[in-house]
């Protein structure tokens, strides 16, 4: 009996841990997504002129390039996609 209880408790702990884990993971994924979105928007403020959006400080933003160079290409693609999705939605509603 002792032994059975012990095993049960062990399983229960594992179960709790597991669920706790997925719960945290899910919540963290949401937080991470929000962080990424804020960052993508920040990149737009930093390097908008690469996409044709005028930027009053673009010269000074060059010194940030070494730290974001690796992500620049994927970021541009994400933003282009976003533009595409917005354009598609707009077309649906006959916005223009």
């Amino acid at each position: 009996m002792e032994k059975v209880l012990k095993t049960l408790r062990k399983w229960w702990e594992v179960f709790v841990l597991f669920h706790h884990g997925t719960f945290i993971d899910k919540r963290m994924a949401v937080v991470r997504k929000e962080a990424f979105d804020i960052n993508d928007n920040l990149m737009l403020l930093l390097f908008g002129d690469f996409l044709g959006i005028p930027n009053p400080v673009s010269y000074y933003m060059l010194e940030l390039l070494p730290y974001v160079a690796d992500d620049l290409e994927t970021w541009e693609r994400r933003i282009q996609n976003r533009k595409f999705i917005i354009a598609e939605k707009a077309a649906q509603y006959d916005f223009d």
Binding site: D49, F50, P54, N55, V57, S58, Y59, L62, L65
Partner: peptide, 11 residues
Amino acid sequence: QIEIAYMSPGA
């Protein structure tokens, strides 16, 4: 991209 910033009006 560097060229673009280099040529920007405020540069």
